[in-house]
Design a protein around this nucleic acid. Structure first.
Ligand SMILES: [Mn+2]
Ligand SMILES: [Mn+2]
Ligand SMILES: [Zn+2]
Ligand SMILES: [Zn+2]
Lengths: 143, 143
DNA sequence: TTCCTGAATTATAATGATTCTCATCTAACA
DNA sequence: TGTTAGATGAGAATCATTATAATTCAGGAA
């Protein structure tokens, strides 16, 4: 099997990205540990190996890796506060590119019983609200 | 039926909130139009009736209304970038209070066929990713 | 109605995550 | 090895949101 170093060089080559030392270290910092990583934790980890790295480089490359499908962004929402007056339980459809939000009035695509069974013990799902991510018509037409 | 003014005074009284003119106008700006409202649009609308209102008051009261259940926050997730290396399709369980994210490996609580039928035409759901909101064990124990 | 008091509002400063700028550096290729 | 487009680092800038603190007001008592 190839070394982690070689694996990353391969991936970078496939994406047309220069395989810099910084990218190598950032990528490995995320891949090394399962779970969800904040920029803060990645930056802290990466600085142990490359103390001179810039925070901007971490941001730039995490975004780049997400764009190229090497990493996944956990919650690809708009980061700004949105509010609504419709209190009737309903779900949302969110475009991962333009962050547009549409209502999904009908909810029968969710099997609440199965969901409750799969959730960890103690997690309160008495009013489970669901968001589904995809690409809106306009964005999927572009790509 | 009571006037919109009286309706709001009733709701505010039930929550123990002072029924100020600003709160009245903010609440009505959201309620008047169906759909999802950003702070920017609420602020613009509200200033037409009350030009002296402060942006901080809009933020404060939108948060307050959400806390008291008069309004709903559309995507109650952490606003900071989170990234993961696990590219295998899987879903997430998010705590609306502390914003913790957990994986939901099994996905059979989603009926993809029904979902596709209910989504608007042209919406790309070829890899639908789902987030379910609830209260994690720790947070639901507190409340 | 008038007065009182704690809460609400306002203007503005502060915060904090993220992005931008640009001078310097380097990976990739010939 | 030399060239160069693209990457990096340091710090400034941005922008949404929150904190501060002085002023005003809602709501209850007299
Ligand atoms: Mn909605
Ligand atoms: Mn995950
Ligand atoms: Zn879109
Ligand atoms: Zn929680």
């Amino acid at each position: 099997m190839a070394s982690a170093h070689e694996q990353f060089r391969n991936l970078a080559w496939k994406c047309g990205l220069a395989a810099t030392h910084q990218r190598q270290v950032i990528y490995e910092a995320v891949i090394a540990t399962p779970g969800h990583h904040s920029v803060e934790t990645v930056y802290a980890e990466v600085r142990r190996r490359t103390p001179s790295i810039s925070l901007a480089t971490v941001y730039n490359n995490l975004r780049l890796f997400v764009e190229h499908g090497l990493l996944r962004e956990v919650s690809p929402h708009s980061s700004m506060l949105l509010v609504e007056g419709n209190l009737a339980p309903h779900h949302h459809l969110i475009c991962t590119r333009c962050k547009a939000v549409q209502d999904l009035e009908v909810a029968d695509f969710v099997n609440v019983k199965k969901l409750a069974r799969q959730a960890p013990r103690g997690f309160d799902l008495s009013q489970p609200l669901v968001e589904v991510f995809g690409l809106c018509r306009r964005c999927s037409a572009k790509s």
